[in-house]
Nucleic acid binder design. Structure first.
Lengths: 153, 153
DNA sequence: TATAGGCGAAGGTCAAAGATAGTCAAACAG
DNA sequence: CTGTTTGACTATCTTTGACCTTCGCCTATA
């Protein structure tokens, strides 16, 4: 199973985050290390380390510039509230899957549960003539989160 | 009896599956190998490696794209096939819940999993005209069952 | 000594090019 | 007629590069 360079960079960053709650990266150094253009780092960050997955990115330009990557740690209650608000607008498959991934990461969902929910909001499930897929998806995600919230009381 | 190229490709894929429960294919490479157009691979996959025959296909486009083919074991095959055919027509909330409860009783789903799936096909999730709702619900149920089928290999 | 302005060193954005896979319907073979 | 083969067109994901913005520092100069 061949991995793209983006996948490799993702793994590298992810494992750095295993040990710390936040890390500081140098975009140029990382790019050099992986022999890619600097903007590839942005691509990985923007597609993999999103708010939906519970990451926050801060950065500073200029001399001594940096990129700081933080994994959010909030209480379950807050987490549900935040996730709910993320689901208040239409969601693409990718976005919804990221939110589910985040729950998986926090062990709120098991791998099996995550996969089952992903299957319900997949393009194949919601493939309807009208293009209201994304709205439907956000409805479903909201109900899932509400269901989870019922448990935690 | 002359074999069509589709038959040859089918055999090739089938024998790769003899050794593993799933394989990853590259559509373009396969097409090159058999000197056919890439869409021929789709034809073979769609006509020979169907859900009814116990195969599940997943894929990703773009750089480093792939096609993943999974085969189920025969033992579980029948129950899933039957459930799938129950889900081939529009389903009311009550009907869908019955199917889910059935899986719960057979311990194919945990209580939590059942509740989560129920929430996704609830009236609140699929807030549309009834006839659309029921069709959507059957689509979702089908994908859930297919997801479960992937596990049983 | 204070500071405005220039310079180089980060990081950011965006769109084009490249790499796969999917769909669909016409053409073709038996 | 049915099943197969082809290819034009579409959808999605990744890689690359040109151009833009911001920041710290250094230097010239009032």
């Amino acid at each position: 199973m061949n991995k793209s360079i983006s996948d490799v960079i993702e793994q590298f960053i992810m494992s750095s985050l295993d040990e710390n709650d936040f890390i500081e990266l140098s975009r140029n150094d990382l790019a050099k290390f992986f022999s890619c253009v600097p903007s590839q780092i942005n691509y990985v960050l923007n597609t993999r380390f999103t708010i939906n997955r519970g990451f926050v990115i801060e950065s500073q330009r200029g001399g001594n510039g940096y990129i700081k990557l933080t994994r959010m740690h909030d209480s379950d209650n807050n987490f549900y509230k935040n996730s709910l608000s993320l689901c208040r607008r239409p969601l693409s498959v990718v976005e919804a899957n990221q939110i589910i991934d985040n729950m998986l990461q926090r062990k709120i969902l098991s791998g099996r549960e995550a996969n089952l929910i992903k299957s319900t909001i997949s393009a194949k499930s919601l493939n309807n003539p009208i293009n209201i897929d994304n709205t439907l998806r956000s409805n479903i995600m909201q109900q899932v989160i509400i269901e989870l919230m019922k448990e935690s009381r």
